[in-house]
C-alpha cells in the first residue's frame, strides 16, 4: 500500500547513494544502468509499494534532488 511517491530530479543528482543508504523501507536502489546528464549513477524508485512518504530521502539528499509526495484524500487507501 503505497502512501506516497518520490520524484528524482535527474539533473541535480550526483549519485552519492545516501538515499539508498538511509531509506528505512529500502525503496530506492542504484541499479547501475541509469545515468544522469553529468554521468553520475542515478537511483531508481524500485520498491514503490512500501513507500510511506516519510521524507527521509529528501532530507538526507545533499543535492536536493528528491521531492516526496504523499497521497491525499480517499485515494490513499485504495492505491
Amino acid at each position: 500500500m503505497a502512501k506516497g511517491e518520490i520524484v528524482i530530479i535527474d539533473v541535480n543528482c550526483r549519485g552519492c547513494g545516501f538515499c539508498q543508504l538511509f531509506c528505512p523501507k529500502d525503496c530506492i536502489t542504484i541499479t547501475g544502468d541509469r545515468f544522469s546528464p553529468l554521468g553520475y549513477l542515478l537511483p531508481t524508485f524500485t520498491n514503490q509499494d512500501q513507500c510511506n512518504a516519510c521524507g527521509i530521502c529528501a532530507w538526507m539528499c545533499p543535492h536536493l534532488a528528491i521531492d516526496v509526495y504523499r497521497y491525499a484524500g480517499k485515494g490513499a487507501a485504495k492505491s
Binding site: 506516497g4 511517491e5 512518504a53 521524507g55 529528501a58 532530507w59 528528491i66 521531492d67 516526496v68 509526495y69 504523499r70 497521497y71 491525499a72 484524500g73 485515494g75 490513499a76 485504495k78 492505491s79
Partner: peptide, 12 residues
C-alpha cells in the same frame, strides 16, 4: 484511481 489523477501533497 491511478497515481496520476490522485491528489498529491508535497511533504518536503
Amino acid at each position: 484511481m491511478t497515481r496520476e489523477t490522485q491528489n498529491k501533497v508535497k511533504v518536503t
